[in-house]
């Protein structure tokens, strides 16, 4: 690999703003390119003209490729791949970065195999040492981590959500924006989207919550999960769950935190009856403070926790919720008095 690193970031959008993961990847790309005079380009697939190009330059992209095609209104990997493959063949970036999202995880292996590039998924760190890229990722269900490198000139990598500090938006940062004609022919797509049903309903998004209450096996059933909900209501938090709690039907799979679920990084994380299995912890280990309640003093969760209680969640929670409520009310009364 040459000393210069040319990075292509594949952007994802939410309406007319960038997805948080894209801002995080641009942060990583800028740090990587910054030290060694590399370049950061970004590509976005948009159904119609909008401000995404400017958003990408404001987040640090020097060059933006905007590919427009009404077919991009439905996001399937098939729709992005022809244009993305063509762009990569034309520009020959040395590193292609995608989010480890359903979209990114679908595209990365396909693109890499088409281009004889290396593919490394769900990375949490990338460094450049001795002219070689090294990527860190978790494996064995989060029990271990590996550092990998590649034989190839080109690397396609997906990046775990919330593993990188995002770039800050700076509208004085300008870059070049090029519009590309899409080569995607909708009539040739093999996978057709028939319908979409929302999975999530009321309440704030787990990924965005500042306080997350995680329900584990130790809550011993839906009555225990009801206590987690109550604590969440008091702390204005959101309730997540371990895979075990979902498998047992106590919590919906939409709330599953971990390797095959959602990644969260709240300021405060309550692990209630959560053992601390690797596959769960990869989804929450960036939390600011972890507080664990578990009846097993040897549970792995305590090794991740700032505060711990050895005991039964179902016994402790009602009293604890009451205490938290009291303190919050006192605090509110005090603030009110000061005004």
């Amino acid at each position: 690999m040459t000393t210069v690193i040319d990075i292509l970031v594949v952007a994802e959008t939410q309406g007319d703003v960038l997805a948080p993961i894209t801002c995080e990847i641009l942060g990583l790309a800028n740090r990587l390119a910054g030290g060694i005079g590399g370049t950061v380009a970004a590509v976005a697939f948009v159904p119609e003209t909008d401000n995404i190009g400017e958003e990408l330059t404001a987040h640090g992209a020097e060059q933006v490729y905007l590919v427009k095609n009404p077919v991009f209104a439905t996001c399937t990997a098939d729709t992005w791949l022809p244009d993305l493959e063509k762009l990569v063949r034309d520009r020959q970036p040395s590193l292609i970065l995608l989010g480890h999202t359903t979209m990114g995880a679908d595209i990365a292996p396909y693109l890499a195999f088409r281009l004889n590039a290396a593919v490394i998924t769900d990375s949490v760190a990338i460094a450049k040492k001795d002219r070689q890229l090294t990527l860190t990722r978790s494996c064995y269900g989060g029990k271990a981590q590996e550092v990998v490198t590649s034989h190839t000139e080109m690397v396609v990598a997906t990046i775990r959500a919330k593993s990188q500090p995002a770039t800050t938006r700076d509208t004085t940062h300008k870059g070049k924006i090029a519009s590309l004609d899409s080569i995607c022919d909708p009539t040739r797509l093999r996978v057709k989207v028939i319908g979409r049903q929302p999975r999530r309903h009321e309440g704030q998004r787990l990924e965005d919550a500042e306080v997350v209450i995680a329900a584990g096996r130790g809550l011993r059933g839906v009555e225990g999960v009801a206590l987690a909900n109550e604590l969440a209501a008091v702390l204005n938090g959101a309730v997540g769950a371990t895979r075990a709690a979902c498998d047992m039907g106590w919590c919906p799979y939409t709330s599953q935190i971990g390797l095959s679920g959602i990644t969260v990084a709240p300021d405060l994380y309550f692990a209630l009856g959560v053992s601390g299995a690797g596959q769960h912890m990869v989804g929450c280990q960036s939390a600011g403070t972890i507080v664990a309640v578990n009846n097993d003093p040897d549970a792995a969760i305590f090794a991740y926790s700032r505060f711990g209680v050895v005991g039964d969640c179902r016994e402790i929670l009602p009293a604890f919720i009451e205490e938290v409520r009291k303190l919050k009310n006192q605090n509110r009364a005090k603030q009110h008095g000061e005004k």
Partner: peptide, 8 residues
């Protein structure tokens, strides 16, 4: 194409 350098 991918080589593991370290596992820990």
């Amino acid at each position: 194409r991918v080589v593991r350098k370290k596992l820990f």
